[in-house]
Write a protein that binds this DNA or RNA. Sequence first.
RNA 1: GGUCGGUUGCCCGAGUGGUUAGGGACCGGUCUGCAAAACCGGGGACAGCGGUUCGAAUCUGCUACCGACCUCCA
Length: 487
Amino acid sequence: MLQIYNTLTRQKEYFRPIHEGHAGMYVCGPTVYGDAHLGHARPAITFDLLYRYLLHLGYKVRYVRNITDVGHLEHDADEGEDKIAKKARLEQLEPMEVVQYYTNRYHRDMEALNVLPPSIEPHASGHIIEQIAFVQKILDKGYAYVSDGSVYMDVEKYAKDYPYGKLSGRNLEDIVTDTRELDGQSEKKHSYDFALWKKAAPEHIMHWPSPWSEGFPGWHMECSTMGTKYLGEEFDIHGGGMDLMFPHHEAEIAQSCAALGHESVHYWMHNNMITIAGKKMGKSYNNFITLEQFFKGEHELLSKPFAPMTIRFFILMAHYRSTVDFSSEALEAAEKGYARLQEAYNRLQKLQAGAETSVEVSGLREKCAEAMDDDLNSPIVLQHLFDSARAINTVYDGKGSISAADLDELRKVWKDYAVDILGLRLEEQGAGDENRKAFDGAVDLLLDIRLDAKRNKDWGTSDRIRNALTELGFKIKDTKEGYEWSL
RNA sequence: GGUCGGUUGCCCGAGUGGUUAGGGACCGGUCUGCAAAACCGGGGACAGCGGUUCGAAUCUGCUACCGACCUCCA
């Protein structure tokens, strides 16, 4: 039975859905004012893994991942400028043009990483009316106040009735003493009050009418609003990066409790950060590498381009709650490991069944299930797949055998866990369109000629063909029967 | 400063009381015209100092170092 680590309780809990057979999950998506980097790949892949596993377990899943296209402010909640608007002005584009541009590119990168699209991908800008209604509810309940056209959460009042800070393990006193004094907070009662609605400054391009002012929603509003709109006032899982725990998710809890009188989320899940030389990779650290740069190898820290599946595999090699430290060396190791898995998968499809099974293949499905049930332990699943790869290679080498029933099961387990759950694109090699068939045939022909040359001990011709193909990027392997090749 | 987390072999990275993690690199062997791949075997690790225990990488205390959040952030 699936256990997931709930940040709320700081322990692993059995997943018990609110509605039998259904699972609702909400994940904080990207702010679309820049290209996706490795850090965006982490939550996308982590929660893709969860989504895929829930589907595998037979749940009907509604997966909501938002697009943040309004409301995140440049510097602080009071003086900042809407990020999207700023970028738009700089580039002389319509705000929605910027949003569309980066959304398209985000989708392209996610598709490359084999991240399944969510069931619903709501835009904050498309839910202004709902957000205004949500703010109004909080006002009606008396947990917010209007000040100069903006609406703020009355955190002090809220904290008297609800435990504020429970998710991130803070209490109000800590927050009081630790919150930096910022300029221009005069319109807030307390520094820790956060904006639910902000009056737009004249230079703002993106703003909407509301009962309080022409403005835009506070940056935590969209998740509370859209999460409950599409998943219900209570739903199962909310995910996101650890850096969002405070204040973003804490504020979400406060907003939901204030408006609805109860919490919305049963399981809070947080993926850890990606580091680069031990430091967090992030937009504001100027040390981030975009996914496109990875795919093209265009960054000084990268020794070469890395395929999307290498990135995915690299991220799955570590547990989602651990930090994972990036280096070109680590990625190269991942690349080789992935190739080994790919090779084993290809061979698995070609294996011939024997009378009995002499290699250790039993219990693979159970072991993989056990690992996934244990808070999505993808590294352990990979460990089992590698163990299985050894068995496959043994049989492939003719040093062992496998029965028809075991072979069939093995193929199914690999399909289920490696392809469907881990989301590795192992089976899309050389799928047969006409061009590809002709191409394969041509390469086979060359290697047949080489084989003849070898039989005639014409090493010159033999090596010439192998070297030339290797030069072009082919990998040639001699086997007892003849040869194998791959690109 | 407050809160939380981490420190595992050459590198990445699992593991929570006793049993081989796994991957990459490296070394040796088998195979091979050579090579590659594959297979077999190998060495090496649990930050430091105490404590609990028959037994600790795993529990506990202290120390050192690193990081995250507290401010936009995945």
